[in-house]
Simulated scan of single mutants.
Amino acid sequence: MKMALINGSPKGGPSNSGFLLEKLKPLITEGNELHSYRVNAKQLKPEQYRELNEADVIVLAFPLYFDAIPSHLLRMMVELENYRQSEPGNPNLIVYVLINNGFFEGRQCTIAADMVSNWCVRCGFRFGMAVGHGAGEMFNDIKMVPLGKGPLKNLGKAMTRLSTAILTRSSAESLFIQPNFPRILWRLSATHFFWHRKAKQNGLRPKDLRKQPFQESR
Rank of each mutant, 00 (worst) to 15 (best):
E81Q: 11
V78H: 13
E79C: 14
S86M: 10
P26W: 00
F104D: 04
E47L: 07
A130S: 14
P10M: 08
D141A: 13
G136Q: 05
E173L: 06
N100W: 07
L93Y: 01
K211N: 13
Y83H: 15
W186R: 04
N53C: 15
R50P: 11
A41L: 10
G128K: 02
E87W: 09
V116D: 03
M138P: 04
S163F: 02
E105V: 00
C109L: 05
S170G: 14
M77F: 05
E22F: 08
G132S: 06
C123N: 04
E33R: 11
K25N: 09
A135N: 01
V39L: 11
I99N: 02
V78I: 15
I94G: 05
E47G: 09
L93A: 03
I111E: 14
G31D: 01
R38S: 10
K157N: 09
T191M: 14
L34K: 02
Y96D: 06
N16T: 15
K2G: 03
E81F: 12
N53T: 10
R107S: 11
G89D: 08
V57E: 02
E22L: 07
I69K: 00
P182Y: 07
A172V: 12
P10L: 12
G12Y: 05
A41C: 11
A172H: 08
K200P: 02
M115P: 04
E87F: 13
K11M: 12
L162M: 15
G106Y: 00
P46M: 07
G150H: 06
Y96C: 14
Y49F: 10
M76C: 15
N100A: 06
S36T: 06
V39H: 15
M1Q: 09
S71C: 09
L98F: 04
